[in-house]
Design a protein around this nucleic acid. Structure first.
Length: 578
DNA sequence: GCCGTTTTCGGCCCGACTGTTTTCAGTCG
């Protein structure tokens, strides 16, 4: 059973959203939001905490602790259910449209009866939105554009959500007697940034019990297909889950086939055809006789039978991986185990939910050789950072270092790149940090030349080591800024500035195609979690998946390097001597 | 609704930007 923290956080978040829409005390809504974040990021399983323990979580007081207990015991919160009856479910979805907040969503519902994103799009297209008080033609156009953005992400879900659901299903299916193996395949296994449906593969003699088990899972709201070879269900959120069961001797060929991508499979099958063979999900066969020519139990053996090394799933996109493999030049991509540290994390000094001590301890538990805390700099006004606060944190960190002999504690900051490419602090002050990440958090609408210029200038700053989430896109919410990335890549290579691969599943920035391009310039990368809680340190797995999709090796990724080599890189001017 | 080496009441996450306004509401990071 998964930790209930996420489920409770979602319920609190929903309540916060409803309170905001109903126009109640904004501070109350914010209090629930804060509690939701704290619960999601709380290291302990809240299902094991009593009310007094719950109140120890920052942001959780008497009222919220009571509601959490109520929910854990009965699965319900009457106050929430009461509020739900006032707002149709579709209205809450409206705030997912960029530029639409709770107030406008409520106005649209009250004045036009809009209660879903589809109805909103229809009203905007019909020109009925522009006449509302506080709205206008431009707002109407923004709304349509926002809906379009959401549609582009389509019904696809983010990698972390897909990973969670697939993990839950796989765990349940592994409990079914006769299960020899079970794993997610498809775009999830390839670590694509979003996942359209979930493919699960099982190795077993008798498919029946697995098909049955899938349809009986609590999250299976509806059965779409129920057969011997394949069963599909849909979750209440509309996500389709496909289950295939194959005999154990076809596990490898099944995994290969259902992992895809389709384009990669076509290429592999072409090679088989050239060898007079036929590759399917059931194995590798002689095209003439139909006799199996290789063991199909493992992917490795099938690739080998075709003269290929095993190709990591994240690289199976028909982007030249097969040609590279045939030449013996396929890079061995970076793995989570290769990471020796994390260079972008936050604490509760700014918008994180865990203390410096807890974050350091969690990083140490991951076995890191080094770890950087990089809280927000003063330019992001809402975080209220000051020189005094960051210097006090530095002292705390230095003191804490005595408790972490095996892990080097680096003091850093996440600077804000202003519209001209400047950052928050002057050089003398920046020189006091061990590592500086610089990120864009404002002025998303500048023109291409200005955006390029500010990023290049940030690279040229000798105290900026890493450009954080370089395009600043939010998947399904906001496109990246319009900059000439090639010029930025060249500047990074020239100045010895690393580009971040931000592991937050909402960002995954840089994205895979841009990484492939950037590495040709000789750019180095940092795969970071951007964790705002101890649990989020694990987000590096999605960053690593993205790095693999960009063919990066340990040599490309600075936080796989031993401390001495990293230290040389952080002395920026001498980085190219490496 | 939460929280307290300035407070058990009165603060809380501030400032910029956008579009719709004619002084400001709403949204975002």
């Amino acid at each position: 059973m998964a930790r209930p923290n996420e489920e409770v956080a979602a319920v609190l978040q929903e309540y916060a959203g409803l309170l905001a829409i109903t126009g109640q005390d904004a501070f109350k809504a914010r209090a629930y939001e804060k509690a939701a974040r704290a619960v999601a990021g709380h290291p302990a399983d809240i299902g094991r905490l009593d009310e007094a323990d719950l109140r120890q979580i920052p942001g959780v007081g008497r009222s919220i602790a009571g509601k959490i207990t109520e929910y854990l015991e009965t699965g319900r919160i009457p106050a929430l259910e009461e509020t739900r009856t006032q707002i149709p479910p579709g209205v809450r979805e409206l705030v997912a449209v960029p530029d639409l907040g709770p107030r406008k969503a409520m106005t649209l519902h009250r004045e036009l009866g809009v209660s879903s994103v589809d109805e909103l799009a229809a009203a905007a297209r019909a020109g009925r939105v522009r006449d509302l008080k506080g709205f206008g033609e431009r707002t109407e156009a923004h709304i349509l554009h926002g809906v379009e953005l959401m549609r582009q992400a389509g019904d696809r879900i983010l990698l972390d959500a897909a990973t969670g659901i697939a993990g839950e299903i796989a765990a349940a299916l592994r409990e079914v007697p006769g299960c020899a193996d079970c794993a997610p395949a498809g775009s999830l296994r390839r670590m694509k940034e979003t996942v359209g449906d979930i493919d699960i593969l099982v190795a077993a003699r008798d498919p029946g019990p697995f098909m049955e088990a899938l349809t009986r899972l609590p999250l299976a709201a509806e059965t779409v297909v129920h057969g011997d070879k394949k069963t599909s269900v849909r979750t209440s959120a509309g996500l389709q889950v496909d289950l295939r069961v194959l005999p154990p001797e076809a596990w490898g060929s099944g995994l290969l086939y259902f992992t895809g991508s389709r384009a990669h499979n076509v290429r592999v099958r072409e090679i088989a055809v050239r060898h007079g063979l036929k590759l399917s999900e059931y194995g590798l066969f002689d095209a003439e006789t139909g006799k199996p020519v290789a063991s199909a139990a493992r992917e490795e053996d099938l690739y080998a039978a075709l003269g290929l090394p095993w190709i990591p799933p994240a690289m199976r996109e028909d982007r030249g991986e097969i040609a590279a493999a045939l030449r013996g030049e396929l890079p061995g991509p970076v793995t989570v185990d290769d990471l020796r540290g994390d260079l972008h994390t936050h604490t509760d000094l700014t918008d994180g939910v865990a203390s410096l001590e807890d974050m350091a301890a969690a990083a140490a538990r991951r076995g890191y050789s080094y770890w950087a805390v990089t809280d927000h700099a003063p330019g992001l006004a809402m975080q209220r950072m000051t020189d005094e606060k960051i210097l006090r944190q530095r002292e705390q960190l230095r003191a804490l270092a005595r408790r972490h002999r095996g892990m080097r504690l680096l003091h850093g900051a996440e600077l804000n790149i202003d519209e001209h490419g400047g950052v928050d602090w002057p050089a003398e002050f920046l020189a006091g940090f061990d590592v500086c990440v610089a990120s864009v958090h404002s002025h998303f609408g500048l023109g291409r030349r200005e955006q390029t210029r500010r990023l290049v200038r940030a690279c040229e700053n000798p105290h900026v080591h890493i450009i954080g989430h370089p395009t600043t896109r939010r998947i399904g919410r906001r496109p990246g800024i319009d900059a000439d990335l090639d010029e930025v890549f060249a500047a990074c290579a020239r100045t010895g500035t690393a580009l971040e691969i931000n592991g937050s599943p909402h960002r995954l920035d840089l994205r895979d195609e841009d990484i492939l391009r950037a590495r040709r310039y000789g750019v180095r990368f940092a795969v970071d979690s951007d964790a705002h809680s101890t649990a989020e340190l694990d987000q590096v797995r999605y960053g690593v998946g993205t790095a693999q999709r960009g063919w990066l090796t340990t040599d490309d990724v600075i936080n796989t390097w031993p401390p001495a080599r990293l230290r040389r890189f952080l002395r920026k001017d001498r980085a190219r001597a490496d």
